[in-house]
């Protein structure tokens, strides 16, 4: 206790304490998804005549698995970064002799550092899958590209949810309110017999148009041509 530890390091330690369960689970899932996707793709290819098409099609079906894993990890780590400050009404953080923006930055970067664990787990899983499974000769494995995409998607999800959860409960309420309005509008329109797909249009705008959120859509595949 004689030597003062660095502020960032102790914040990293506190966030590790709060998120190690999430990180462990997230890392297991991230490690497993490439292995399972390749296993199922190999099975599908064995049973098909056009092996490459079946292989890639099955691999692509797992895109949602990668996107959900990245979004889920980003969401949970971001919420955990602020949960105890919210519970204690930020009294401890606000009474520390540090500018608020610096404290927020320290919390953000500490969480960011922790996201390296599931990302490395995904890389390990992807490398292991790429080297252990029988892939049709015309196809190639892209473990590093997949990992980079996963890292970016995790970063995007973490940043968005960190921003929301670091704000006041009122701000978080506004965000949830907008989401609730979209869902209510969809329910009302559907029950009125309208064919308008509000949720689909909103998700097209958010995820399909060029922008950082587009990382969650499209093809996430370890094996490709």
């Amino acid at each position: 206790m004689s030597q003062r530890p660095s502020q960032w390091r102790v914040l990293l330690e506190t966030q590790w304490t709060w998120t190690r369960g999430i990180l462990l689970l997230g890392s297991i899932v991230a490690f497993t998804v490439p292995l399972v996707s390749l296993e199922t793709a190999a099975g599908a290819a064995d049973a098909a005549s056009a092996k490459e098409v079946a292989f890639i099609g099955t691999m692509q079906a797992w895109s949602i698995g990668y996107a959900l894993t990245a979004a889920g990890i980003g969401l949970l780590i971001a919420i955990a970064a602020w949960s105890y400050d919210h519970r204690l009404r930020h009294v401890y953080a606000l009474s520390l002799p540090i500018a608020r923006w610096r404290y927020v930055l320290q919390r953000y970067t500490a969480g960011l550092a922790l996201l390296a664990l599931p990302t490395l787990a995904l890389l390990a899983g992807a490398e292991l899958a790429a080297h252990s499974a029988a892939v049709p000769a015309t196809l190639h494995a892209y473990p590093l590209a997949l990992t980079l995409r996963f890292a970016f998607a995790t970063l995007v999800a973490y940043s968005i949810f960190f921003g929301i959860s670091s704000a006041t409960a009122r701000t978080a309420g506004y965000v949830l309110g907008v989401i609730a309005l979209i869902i209510i509008a969809q329910v009302v329109l559907s029950s009125a017999g309208s064919g308008v797909n509000v949720i689909g249009r909103v998700s097209d705008i958010v995820f399909a148009t060029p922008g950082v959120l587009a990382v969650f859509s499209g093809r996430w595949t370890l094996i490709d041509v």
Partner: peptide
Amino acid sequence: HVYPTLTVDEALRLHAAYHDRWDGA
């Protein structure tokens, strides 16, 4: 106002990190 998930030692370390005049002894 101290984070309940920390141990006493961890709470001390956290507080020490933010206070220049912290007297560890």
